[in-house]
Amino acid sequence: MIQKKRSVLITGVCTPWGGKLARLLENDPDFNIILGLDYKKPEFPLRKTEFFQVDLHNPLIAELIKTSEVDTVCHLQFMDAYSHSEEIFDLNVMGAQSLLAACAAGEVPRVLFMSDTMVYGGSSRNPCFLEETADFKGQYRHPYVRDRWEVEKLLAKFSREYPEIKTTILRFANILGPDVDTPMRRYLEAPAVPMVFGFDPMFQFTHEEDVVAALYHALKSDAHGVFNVAGQGAMPIGQVLRVGRRVPVPFGAPFLRMSNFFVQKTPVADYIPIETDFLKYTFVGDTTRMKEVLGFKPKFTSKQTVIDFFEHLRILGYIPKRGEIETAPEAHEQLQEYINSMRRINEAIQGLQ
Rank of each mutant, 00 (worst) to 15 (best):
S83R: 15
F300D: 06
F44T: 13
K297F: 11
P236M: 08
L188E: 03
F251K: 13
E150K: 08
C74N: 08
P16M: 07
E324C: 05
A22F: 14
Q353K: 11
K299Q: 09
P267C: 05
L35T: 07
E63F: 07
G138K: 02
K40D: 10
R146Q: 14
T327Q: 11
L279E: 12
Y338G: 05
T301M: 08
S7F: 06
D28S: 11
H332P: 05
K157G: 07
Y338Q: 13
E150H: 04
E150A: 14
Y82H: 15
I274R: 13
I34C: 05
T288N: 11
V247G: 00
L154D: 01
S115K: 06
F136D: 03
A134D: 06
E189D: 14
I2N: 15
P236Y: 05
D200F: 09
V243D: 00
V247Q: 11
F197C: 11
S98V: 02
P127V: 12
A62R: 00
E189P: 09
P16T: 14
A101T: 11
I349P: 01
L130Q: 13
G231P: 12
M202I: 10
H224D: 15
E209I: 07
V13C: 06
F283V: 06
P320M: 09
G177E: 00
K291G: 08
A223G: 12
E324K: 12
H207L: 10
F113G: 01
S115E: 06
V180M: 09
L188V: 04
L37H: 10
F310L: 04
P191W: 07
V229D: 04
F251D: 12
G138H: 02
K280H: 05
V249D: 13
E209K: 14
D270P: 02
A234I: 04
S302E: 00
I325G: 03
N346Q: 09
S124P: 12
G138F: 01
I169Q: 07
I307N: 09
D80C: 10
E189I: 12
T11G: 13
L279S: 10
K66V: 03
V211W: 02
K41S: 09
E164W: 08
R47N: 15
L215K: 05
K4P: 05
E164D: 13
V229L: 13
L130M: 15
F51V: 10
P329Q: 14
E87L: 08
L60H: 11
L170F: 03
M114H: 13
I319S: 01
D116L: 04
D181I: 10
C14I: 08
T327G: 06
G238A: 09
N340L: 11
Q350C: 11
D222Q: 15
K299M: 05
G244H: 08
I61Y: 00
I61D: 00
T49G: 10
D200R: 10
A101L: 01
L170A: 07
V247Y: 06
G295F: 02
G95R: 03
E107P: 04
F205K: 02
E189M: 12
L256A: 00
M290K: 08
R314W: 11
F78R: 06
T167L: 06
D90M: 10
G122L: 00
P178C: 07
L24F: 14
